[in-house]
Design a protein around this nucleic acid. Structure first.
Lengths: 189, 189
DNA sequence: GATCTGATGGGACTTGGTCCCATCACCATA
DNA sequence: TATGGTGATGGGACCAAGTCCCATCAGATC
């Protein structure tokens, strides 16, 4: 059992996903996850602050969305800027090779309230980040909030659509389509 | 120490709120909450499924919102129906005598991520409940989702405004005003 | 080969949460 | 008065999550 094998985090993530699929989240112990990854409980908590977080890699998304919104052309409407940000996310994070993982991850989350709770919190963070980036573009507060909220909804829907495709579909395109759908739906409110 | 004193749940809730204010959420033990309420750990978990839930009374809100939406006049637009539901909630739950408690509760939640996480989950539940009630009115899926999302945002903002007032303000009115604001903001997206 | 650095192992400890059983208050009935 | 039933509570054993601290080991550097 050689120490020092690379990709400890990745191994832990995969081990956790597999075990959650096999026995469910609450029937899986952190120690078991660590063991399957050839590591120990101590090391697990050195890589992730808690058991849930193992399925919610880093907080890079918030910064990426903010960057994408800031970089959108000055003439873009708030929702256009959000669409641009989702395009960036699609190119840098939701790449085709991660599609299958996303689908498995979504299925596990859907089956366990504790994980949904964490996802909801992450969603709040992303919404706040987008709203913040929009106000820095000069968008008035409430409008920024609404656009960010719709953006978060669009991202969620697009993520589900993307992970459910058989492959080949670009996340950015799906997101853009989703936003136009939401825009149409919003006028009926 | 007479057993059988009434209002065990209320006493636990108040004790928890006080302790969270005094020492913070993570520096407060369930045993301490129970002791201040003149009860024990066992009894605490008999009244609440976990430590967080003590600040998130029951799940009556979802049903109330659904009822309010269902009862709205047939001519009402989706957002109008939501406004009607928020009015119902204002009359049955967010009554003036609970305003001060709401303010203290919000302050505590804002200071502790674990509590924000639970609130985020509750928000998801309410959104889903509203979207569901809207589709039962014949509103198409995506439109229902958008209206529910905006409704949840309106409720959150109105709740903050309401709890921050010095008193006398009606939650339903605040919510209605908030929805008008959001509608205006939405057209700028 | 000695040393330094950083990731890992391991164990003690606290707390959240579950489970099970004993105990007590209150009520009804004889 | 007593007797039994019901439901809420007390209490303790137990497991898993998460924290802390220290020992250990691999690899790089000199």
């Amino acid at each position: 059992m050689a120490r020092w094998q690379p990709n400890a985090s990745e191994r832990l993530i995969l081990a956790a996903l597999e075990l959650f699929e096999e026995r469910g989240y609450e029937n899986t112990t952190v120690i078991e996850i660590a063991e399957r990854a050839g590591l120990t409980k101590s090391t697990f908590f050195r890589h992730f602050p808690d058991k849930r977080e193992v399925l919610f890699g880093g907080d890079t998304m918030a910064g990426l969305l903010a960057k994408g919104i800031a970089e959108a052309p000055a003439t873009a409407t708030p929702l256009d800027a959000v669409a641009h940000a989702l395009d960036v996310v699609g190119k840098e994070v939701f790449t085709p090779d991660r599609r299958e993982f996303a689908a498995r991850r979504l299925a596990v989350i859907a089956a366990h309230p504790e994980l949904q709770e964490r996802e909801a919190l992450k969603g709040l963070g992303l919404t706040a980040s987008m709203a913040d980036a929009l106000t820095r573009r000069g968008v008035p507060g409430l409008t920024a909030s609404v656009a960010a909220q719709l953006g978060a909804l669009a991202m969620k829907i697009a993520y589900e659509r993307w992970s459910a495709t058989t492959g080949g579909d670009d996340f950015g395109e799906l997101a853009r389509q989703t936003i136009t759908d939401l825009r149409a739906a919003g006028t009926l409110c």
